[in-house]
Design a protein around this nucleic acid. Structure first.
Lengths: 155, 155
DNA sequence: TTGCTTGCAAATGATTTGCACTGCT
DNA sequence: AGCAGTGCAAATCATTTGCAAGCAA
């Protein structure tokens, strides 16, 4: 059983790396060891993290390279940058790699966690937004729904 | 008629300044000329604007003072800071001073415009978020719904 | 008068960039 | 060989802060 579980996890991570590799290749980027380390850090975190978080998880990486590689990963559609109130931006996998979700943002410690709305709600929100966008002459690409408050640890 | 219209507008702006003054006083802040200029700039814009925008509208203000005063205005609940993808944050009046709304964000030029959901949709979104927050142990204070896409000018 | 405000200049800190070097392909 | 990728250090740029002078209560 334990063996199966490990095998499953390895497969999931393997699939992730493969998908990332394909996305990078599509943009003529290489999937280097440093980029792999970043992807691993994001996968291990399971929630949006900042550049210092990534450096903490992979101290052997040069900060400037991480910045550059996050940029590359963003351009190739692998990660998405989340603008935050604090000093640092947050990064997480972009949508084809992670299912559609939204963010709980703690206004005290700044942590960001993911949550999902049920499909019905999501559909309703989406159609409501499409309507509002149309009225304003906007061409919508995606939406974000954030909940600001106190996380369990800071409440 | 024209006179009435002017009178009305003056009243609205006067009310705004009065409300701002009260909010500042509650926090033991003074309503100085510089702060008034910032409030005017925000009111004239009618949409979220950045610090450079404020300086353009009021070049006589020192940037450092504008930063400090935006901070004061934020603490006293007059303005709200909006974290953006670009270099600068955006600022607009906070919720008691402006009705609840959401943002259309152009991913090309970065402009932010306000829009409102109809009450029914807003209620549904809100209850859906409350439920999701409860499951995650979050104490929600407010939510934001942003639509990212291309504005009419950039489409 | 008292101390909040302001403007200027200097400091800070995240992010970006130049450049020479390394390592895929 | 040829060029993308990397690390380091220097440069950038928004924002913050120290301090002396100005102004409102």
């Amino acid at each position: 059983m334990t063996g199966d579980r490990v095998r499953d996890r390895a497969d999931v991570v393997g699939d992730l790396h493969e998908e990332v590799g394909v996305s990078l290749a599509r943009c003529d980027y290489r999937y280097t060891a440093g980029r792999r380390r970043i992807v691993d850090a994001l996968a291990d975190a399971g929630k949006p993290i900042t550049l210092p978080d990534i450096l903490a998880a992979a101290p052997e990486l040069a900060p400037s390279s991480v910045y550059r590689n996050l940029d590359v990963l963003e351009r190739s559609g692998v990660v998405q940058r989340i603008a935050a109130a604090g000093a640092h931006s947050f990064f997480e996998f972009a949508e084809p790699l992670i299912s559609h979700h939204h963010h709980l943002i703690c206004i005290d410690c700044g942590i960001i966690e993911d949550f999902r709305l049920d499909d019905d709600m999501e559909r309703r929100v989406d159609s409501g937004l499409l309507e509002a966008a149309g009225k304003a002459g906007f061409t919508p690409l995606r939406h974000s729904v954030d909940l600001h408050g106190y996380c369990a640890a800071c409440a």
